[in-house]
């Protein structure tokens, strides 16, 4: 039993990422306001980015900026720097996320201009009555 508890506690950060992801997922499904849904999508996205960044982190690892002369002489210890590959991939994901947010907000303004509300159930009611 203690073994299982130690196993769970050793990866505590992964559990918190899953909790964050589920908070975002609940907001996307359970909330009826469109802005709330978009905030939930952003939370979901940042939790996944956080997971990927944490896979590159190392105990005792420094930032991945090297001294040029030391690197040319081959005197770089891989255990001293964190892995920069997930950082590069997730930079793209952040920028894509902001553009998705911008497009979604523009669509939301069109919806508000047409139906006069941002609540999903009221919009559905107005579409049915048309």
């Amino acid at each position: 039993m203690e073994d299982i508890a130690a196993h769970i506690m050793a990866k505590y950060n992964y559990w918190i990422y899953v909790v964050l992801m589920m908070i975002g997922f609940y907001a996307m499904i359970g909330k009826r306001n469109l802005v709330k849904k978009l905030l939930g999508m952003n939370i979901f996205q940042t939790s996944i980015i956080l997971f990927f960044i944490s896979t590159g982190a190392k105990k005792g690892g420094s930032i991945p900026i090297l001294d040029k002369y030391a690197a040319l002489q081959g005197a770089v210890d891989v255990n001293q720097v964190v892995n920069p590959l997930p950082h590069v991939l997730m930079l793209t994901a952040i920028v894509v996320g902001v553009s998705v947010t911008g497009v979604a907000l523009a669509v939301m303004q069109r919806i508000y201009r047409k139906y006069g509300t941002l609540e999903e159930d009221e919009i559905l009611l107005k579409i049915e009555n048309e």
Binding site: I53, G56, A57, I63, P86, L91, I94
Partner: peptide, 17 residues
């Protein structure tokens, strides 16, 4: 992210996010 050593991602998140 800055604490995990990903300073470039932290910069981008601070400005963009």
């Amino acid at each position: 992210w800055a604490e995990m050593g990903a300073v470039d991602v932290a910069f981008t998140e601070a400005t963009v996010g």
